[in-house]
């Protein structure tokens, strides 16, 4: 793949990643990681780290629009947000201690169950 083709693919992937992250309020990072690995040729760790750099400005843009539209509620946001921060520290600390494959399969199973519940029930 030459440089120009790669740039065009990255631009197109950017459009898709942004649309998903904005429309669903998340999930863009999960798609960014394989794009960075397969198109940009990054190693897994770098792809995960760089995906956060990419998703942050996109998320800020979306968050501002959600807030202006009156969709953000502190009553939900404060307790959940504090939980997220505490969980983030725990998750980062646990990463090196648990089997990655086991976590990824557990994560996929939870997503599948939640997806079925949301789509059909």
């Amino acid at each position: 793949m030459n440089g120009i083709a790669k740039k065009i693919i990255l631009l197109a992937c950017g459009l898709v990643i942004g649309f998903i992250n904005g429309f669903f309020g998340g999930g863009g990072g999960l798609i960014t990681v394989p794009v960075l690995e397969r198109v940009a040729g990054l190693k897994t760790k770098s792809a995960h780290a760089t995906a956060i750099l990419i998703i942050l400005p996109i998320t800020v843009a979306s968050a501002v629009i959600y807030i202006i539209a009156g969709k953000f509620d502190f009553g939900y946001g404060l307790p959940a947000g504090l939980g997220v921060i505490a969980g983030g520290v725990l998750g980062a600390a646990a990463l090196s201690k648990l089997s990655n494959k086991l976590i990824r399969v557990a994560f996929a199973a939870i997503m599948l169950a939640a997806g079925i519940k949301l789509l059909f029930f």
């Binding site: 939980g83 997220v84 505490a86 939870i110």
Partner: peptide
């Protein structure tokens, strides 16, 4: 809500897309 955030945050901290789990936890359980 805090527990949903905690669980989503754990996955997020592990770099696995915590938000993708946080959103359904908040809607289904919260």
């Amino acid at each position: 809500l805090a527990l949903a955030g905690l669980l989503g945050g754990v996955f997020g901290g592990m770099g696995m897309g915590g938000g993708t789990i946080l959103i359904p936890l908040l809607t289904i359980f919260g």
